[in-house]
Design a protein around this nucleic acid. Structure first.
Lengths: 240, 240
DNA sequence: AAGTGGTCTAGACCACGGC
DNA sequence: CCGTGGTCTAGACCACTTC
């Protein structure tokens, strides 16, 4: 009995999971006090440092707040700012289902500039997935994703039409996405965009170009999104 | 001799400061190995847990990176993503000087919607500072800031023309800004904007509306920025 | 095999908060 | 006052990387 105990989990993780589950189930609500380090140590039969580790880590994640001399409390539910989420996940977090239509799917194109962004040789074949995103029945965004066709061969339409690209990559290709750098600016709708989204040419669009990195630090997806003005606002939180 | 030693610092902070200083002075460069936990413990005559605390904390801040089984290394210098910076600070970080022109300065307006965003009574007087931002000689953005006129009376033009609004608030009013929530979308230039920025009407604009909070959590500034397309892109990093 | 970070123990004293 | 979090000790074993 050293690091792991009954199951294959670390002690501090087990403690965190117990607390997390209680919050998830509504047994602990925001503002409620959580057991103190000493109580947790006693209950879980671990040392104080381990109980402390569990709480300090939860506090870092923003799950709980600690007040010196007072105690540890469940943090108010936080809006997930600056989180990298697939369209599917974004919709799900608002209780909506993602609807989209694939308008282009190919795996043998090549584009020097995009290959460069993905740190690929300039003639590398690229897989391209272009989708129109729908809010209700109304199209409001056009998203185009570029990936290395060599690394991700055989991206299937059905899996993309239902699940998200993120989920497909993580499930079928054992790639976990970690972070993305985004460039955001404004343009106007050109002919192709206005046709696909049924909006007038020249409509102002929010353009988001993101380079999504895997957890190994490899640039994995280059995505360009065009969002119809008024139908989509981006939320960001910045810190000083 | 328990928590503090020679000076009034905690042991783990002292260790961090030593490492930080070495990085600042260039004695440690990105990729260089930092002393191991055991070495630090020996050198600073502290326990392993304390040396560990120092390094783990530096790793959280992104100053160093730790690799299991390999060692602790100085992290590559980070670009400051998602940092709340005034226009003046943004320019300074690129080695440029901020140039802007105040086109409106008043302190007795009132606007129910904006007052509400600042959590003020709806008839509260507002101080308004509207500035055109210049890149070289070319105007590329229009920024409008709203503050409580009661709290910030006597905002002087000269201090705003040179220094930043941020600096003025922090110096003259003892307010430190902590974070901001931003809504980003696209619009087009209306008559007033196109006149002020000398651009055609209908030019797509990036619109950033930010609510800036003080370190006490009080909404302090509501700012609306309109940025000319192609002349300004926003950079964001998102994490999963 | 040697060295590293990651987890953990079983305590200790200090600083702070609320009663 | 008592209970809380924050720091700290002097070790231990495990998991991992490097050689």
């Amino acid at each position: 009995m050293t690091a792991n105990q009954s199951n294959g989990q670390h002690a501090y993780r087990r403690i965190q999971n117990v607390i997390r589950k209680r919050i998830e189930l509504g047994k602990l609500r925001p503002g409620d006090v959580v057991e103190s380090e000493r109580e947790l140590a006693r209950i879980h039969k671990v040392s104080l440092m381990t109980a402390r580790h569990a709480l300090a880590d939860l506090a870092r994640e923003g799950v709980v707040e600690r007040r010196h001399g007072a105690g540890t409390f469940v943090a108010p539910p936080k809006i997930h700012f600056n989180k990298l989420m697939s369209y599917t996940e974004q919709m799900a977090s608002r209780g909506l289902s993602a609807r989209s239509k694939i308008v282009r799917l190919s795996s043998s194109e090549s584009d020097t500039e995009i290959a460069a962004r993905l740190s690929l040789p300039s003639a590398s074949p690229l897989a391209v997935v272009q989708r129109v995103r729908l809010a209700g029945e109304e199209p409001f965004a056009l998203e185009t994703c570029y990936l290395s066709a060599d690394e991700f061969h055989g991206l299937a339409v059905p899996s993309l039409e239902r699940g998200s690209l993120f989920a497909t990559l993580e499930r079928d290709y054992d790639v976990t996405l970690a972070y993305a750098d985004e460039e955001i600016d404004a343009t106007d709708a050109d002919q192709r965009v206005s046709d696909l989204l049924s909006i007038p040419r020249g409509t102002p669009m929010l353009r988001i170009r993101q380079l999504i990195y895997s957890s190994k630090g490899t640039p994995t997806i280059y995505a360009v999104g065009l969002y119809r003005s008024g139908r989509h606002t981006l939320l960001i939180r910045r810190f000083r």
